[in-house]
Design a protein around this nucleic acid. Structure first.
Lengths: 162, 162
DNA sequence: CTTCATGCAAAAGATTTGCAAGTTC
DNA sequence: GAACTTGCAAATCTTTTGCATGAAG
């Protein structure tokens, strides 16, 4: 039984990689590897789609930690810095995050009428992005690319409506 | 004398267009055109770069309105819907907005260590996006395009740290 | 004159911080 | 042991709401 529908599984190996990356960050900063920090990483990794800090707090709580609020909030910057999570826009509502690790390619075409999401990948984009990053001296760790619009069938209904 | 450095000027005509667009939205929803709403739009339009709701509140206050907090917060969804503002990710910190009107397309290169944001615009991207949208029958209204990575100087400090 | 908007105060939420007690290295 | 963490409570900040009074259409 699952408390949330919004769960996914990362292949075991990928999850391990992510945890390793996180541990490396902790080590580099002379911070400690604790059970709850590892639990937070795993809870984050098993999320699918966008989620709030609060949802993550609940997931970690469901894992048996009493009041992980403060600890989760304190861990989020670490998750961002280690590239496990990334912040998301989408709608301008609450602060949202999503898993970035292992999902470096994230290209969506979204209909903001009906919510349809078309995923796409376009090698030409990748190349341009790499060039651009290099030009500015950045090392890319992820990207977020969403094209928002109105899909064909919603354009159709719009026409009827007016 | 200016209260803020973060100010810009839209060509008068463009500003008028934006206000018109906003008024049209109000009209369509049977909402009222009030001085403060127009002031909020203008204050928003004269901002450059990313800003918070609170900064907008201060700008409007500087325009002579007593306590525009609630009204500004109530207006922001309208500004988003009319396409005058758009939300931005950037750093996952506070909720940020930026002017979208007349600047529909620009993208961000973000350092997730120090938060530096480099804006870029790349015609080749725009063309690919249009092609792609067309191929799927979408009419584009906005897009979010964030490249996330580590900037040159943070890569530098990383090297020192390890 | 009817309906909506504003300003102010208070509520609700979200995030951060201080601290004593418990853990990791 | 020394330094860092955690959980809990309290403090902050941000955003939303309720309402009486004042405008817009």
């Amino acid at each position: 039984m699952r408390a949330h529908l919004n769960r996914g599984e990362l292949p075991g190996a990928a999850s391990t990689d992510a945890v390793d990356r996180f541990k490396r960050l902790l080590h580099d900063r002379a911070l400690r590897v604790t059970d709850i920090r590892v639990a937070i990483v795993k809870a984050a990794l098993s999320r699918v789609g966008h989620f709030t800090a609060d949802e993550l707090v609940h997931d970690v709580q469901a894992l048996g930690f009493q009041d992980p609020r403060a600890t989760v909030y304190r861990a989020i910057p670490l998750l961002l810095e280690s590239g496990i999570l990334q912040p998301t826009v989408v709608s301008g509502e609450r602060r949202l995050y999503e898993v970035a690790f292992g999902k470096e390619h994230h290209d969506h075409l979204i209909c903001n009428r009906c919510g349809t999401v078309v995923e796409f990948q376009f090698e030409a984009f990748e190349m341009l992005q790499r060039d651009l990053a290099e030009k500015h001296g950045f090392r890319l760790t992820a990207h977020f690319h969403e094209l928002i619009g109105v899909c064909a069938s919603c354009q159709e209904s719009e026409r009827h409506a007016s």
